[in-house]
């Protein structure tokens, strides 16, 4: 199946209650698939094409506030528009699933794939101190699996979760194993607006605390939650790291290209491994720190001008050399140039 369509099917099967979206290339197949497959008839899931990304994310806020499994998807320029709503959702501590099928920027940019929204997703693209849990699929299969996982994590932590995919994963076709249809669940959360229960105070959802002392308490609670997430939810894949003298790191589609470069390097006798973060937040800090004691250098390969590389550097804290190789603006690196960068920047550098 095509990545975007498989993700849409996974949303129906994950028992999502509502999808609100707005068309944008290269992810419009998500809403097209949902509209064509009538999830309203299959599970009762609501699908609505909003008037803008801003409206869509606020519809997600409303539905999520009712304890429902709500989601939206977009691509980079559209994701920028959603940042206001995402900040409110994070502040009000509502669970929801966001999908960003990243394309090259800045501005209207290009419709070609990119990873240049790493900062926006991982560092909090909206205002205020908040974090999204960010999942980075490298295959269509992972995009499907992360829909289910994403909803689980969102409700576990009452926090927005983002699947940060890109135009490659969204547009390519791969074999995929779909999980069985999960039932939609009637919400029964004390934090959700379900209608006031008699003899209980009304529930309200807000991200506003006019008293600074109270707002600091909210922030303390959020930070404690983020520490918990950092402790529990780090995911990564390690390939050929046991005997590695050098390390590649890359995420998403770029990790697949880098893996090819790793195989080419191994064939030449260069002992290089690959560490692929599957969660961009929480970041595999400890794993990088451990490998920094072992390897002579790390090459971070990204389809951007150097974003994740900053987190790699913070993780290894000067213990080993960290360099970046990137193609951007919608360009995709090839394995030869990645291998060449390893030889020039790390081994020969």
């Amino acid at each position: 199946m095509k990545g975007n369509e498989a993700l849409a099917e996974a949303a129906i099967r994950a028992g999502a209650d509502a999808y609100f979206g707005y068309p944008i290339t290269p992810q419009s197949e998500v809403i097209e698939y949902l509209m064509a497959n009538k999830p309203e008839d299959r599970t009762g899931m609501v699908v609505l094409q909003a008037e803008s990304e801003i409206a869509a994310i606020n519809m997600v806020y409303g539905a999520a506030g009712c304890g429902k499994k709500a989601m939206t998807s977009s691509s980079s320029p559209g994701m920028s528009l959603k940042q206001e709503g995402i900040s409110y959702i994070a502040g009000a501590e509502l669970p929801c699933l966001l999908v960003n099928v990243v394309r090259g920027g800045p501005g209207l940019g290009t419709i070609q794939p990119s990873q240049s929204d790493y900062f926006q997703s991982v560092k909090g693209g909206g205002h205020g101190d908040y974090k999204l849990i960010v999942l980075a699929p490298a295959t269509v299969q992972e995009s499907v699996d992360y829909v289910k996982l994403g909803f689980e994590l969102a409700f576990k932590y009452r926090n927005p979760v983002m699947i940060q995919s890109d135009g490659i994963i969204g547009q390519m076709m791969e074999k995929v194993e779909l999980f069985e249809q999960m039932p939609r669940v009637e919400p029964n959360y004390e934090w959700a607006t379900l209608g006031k229960k008699t003899d209980q105070p009304a529930t309200f959802i807000t991200s506003l605390q006019l008293q600074a002392e109270e707002q600091e308490k909210v922030n303390h609670r959020l930070q404690a939650k983020y520490r918990e997430i950092e402790k529990n939810e780090v995911m990564f894949e390690k390939i050929n790291c046991d005997d590695a003298e050098y390390l590649f790191t890359a995420f998403g589609s770029c990790a697949r290209i880098t893996r090819k470069a790793m195989e080419m390097a191994r064939a030449k006798g260069i002992k290089v491994g690959l560490l692929r973060p599957q969660t961009l937040y929480p970041f595999p800090v400890d794993e990088f720190n451990k490998l920094a004691d072992q390897v002579k250098g790390i090459l971070c390969v990204e389809m951007n001008a150097g974003q994740m590389v900053e987190d790699v550097r913070l993780s290894v804290n000067g213990k080993t050399r960290v360099e970046h190789f990137g193609r951007y603006g919608g360009m995709i690196p090839n394995p030869d140039e990645i291998l060449n960068a390893l030889e020039q920047k790390i081994i020969g550098g």
Binding site: A18, F20, A50, A55, Y61, G62, A63
Partner: peptide, 9 residues
């Protein structure tokens, strides 16, 4: 928009 999200679910 928020009300739309609520009413639809």
């Amino acid at each position: 928009a928020v009300a739309t999200g609520i009413k639809r679910v």
